[in-house]
Computed example of a mutant assay.
Amino acid sequence: MSSPASVITCKAAVAWGAGQPLVIEEVEVSPPQPQEIRIKVVATSLCGSDVAAWESQNIFPRVFGHEAAGIVESVGEGVTEFKEGDHVLTLFTGECKMCRHCTSNKSNICQVLGLERNGVMHSDRKTRFSIRGNPVYHYLGVSSFSEYTVVHWGCAAKVSPTAPLEKICILSCGAATGLGASWNVANVSKGSNVAIFGLGTVGLSVAQGAKLRGASRVIGVDINPEKGEKAKDFGVNVYLNPKDYDEPIHEYSGHQEDDRWGC
């Protein structure tokens, strides 16, 4: 039996107000409560959702971040799915695996661990972060811009210990969002044509999903030529730069001679 977990003092990037620069602060991270795990964050990436919330929301001070990979440092009471040392990805939309949505094949917006908007944990509506006894609020129940964080066990997924954590952190949101959009939402069919506007993480993942579903033509639209070139590796076989055309790109009829790489 391991000894009970204690408060950890570590560094975190804290947002003190909307649009204000993040400040590296020493924060206290409480032990995981029942049904929670505490994670040592190894790598985290930046999502547009973090930026949008940082610019506009009014819950501060706050630790943002939700795309992360790390190692379980300790587990709370009742947690059987994880143990200390497990490698995990964080999930900002958790799954309790028991509610009507989790057991349905129509939705994954868990009724228990759905999107958190109030800066507190799902279970007891309190925070696990503090600075000198004052609460620091969470973001989407993850808050990965910290060396350690606490999440509900349903907001994490176990991964192979051989997977490079510094690379797979992006799978927890951006890549999964794009792949799911292509595979589940659009339900791309074999032989179809797919147009993707924006070739960032999500867009490239949409391209991968479309390719896996058998799309015959995957058109990538972006004003950055470097992204257009990189997109070839993700399944895009036609690249269009809106700056190259006088007409709005969505009205462009598309001629074979203008295809950047053919079909």
Rank of each mutant, 00 (worst) to 15 (best):
residue 23 V to F: 09
residue 140 L to T: 10
residue 142 V to P: 02
residue 85 G to F: 08
residue 178 G to M: 04
residue 199 L to R: 04
residue 10 C to I: 10
residue 193 N to A: 12
residue 103 T to E: 12
residue 127 T to L: 10
residue 133 G to E: 00
residue 233 D to S: 05
residue 81 E to V: 15
residue 211 K to D: 03
residue 200 G to T: 12
residue 40 K to A: 13
residue 183 W to R: 14
residue 123 S to P: 01
residue 64 F to D: 06
residue 139 Y to P: 01
residue 182 S to R: 03
residue 92 F to Q: 05
residue 194 V to G: 08
residue 249 I to P: 12
residue 165 L to M: 15
residue 30 S to T: 09
residue 78 G to I: 06
residue 166 E to K: 15
residue 241 N to Q: 07
residue 18 A to N: 04
residue 50 D to R: 09
residue 119 G to A: 06
residue 139 Y to K: 04
residue 218 V to F: 07
residue 257 E to W: 00
residue 62 R to F: 09
residue 100 R to N: 13
residue 195 A to S: 15
residue 26 E to T: 05
residue 144 S to Y: 06
residue 64 F to R: 10
residue 259 D to L: 01
residue 80 T to S: 15
residue 123 S to W: 09
residue 94 G to S: 01
residue 228 G to D: 07
residue 210 A to Y: 12
residue 38 R to I: 01
residue 159 V to W: 11
residue 260 R to G: 04
residue 188 V to I: 15
residue 143 S to R: 13
residue 165 L to F: 13
residue 237 N to S: 01
residue 53 A to I: 10
residue 162 T to G: 02
residue 121 M to H: 14
residue 136 V to G: 12
residue 79 V to E: 01
residue 75 V to A: 10
residue 40 K to M: 03
residue 210 A to T: 04
residue 255 H to A: 01
residue 12 A to R: 03
residue 107 S to Y: 04
residue 30 S to N: 14
residue 196 I to T: 11
residue 217 R to L: 04
residue 25 E to I: 08
residue 9 T to S: 12
residue 101 H to M: 10
residue 177 T to N: 00
residue 173 C to E: 06
residue 173 C to S: 07
residue 151 V to P: 11
residue 130 S to F: 14
residue 177 T to D: 00
residue 29 V to Y: 06
residue 116 E to D: 00
residue 247 E to K: 13
residue 15 A to D: 11
residue 79 V to Y: 01
residue 50 D to H: 08
residue 43 A to H: 08
residue 163 A to Y: 06
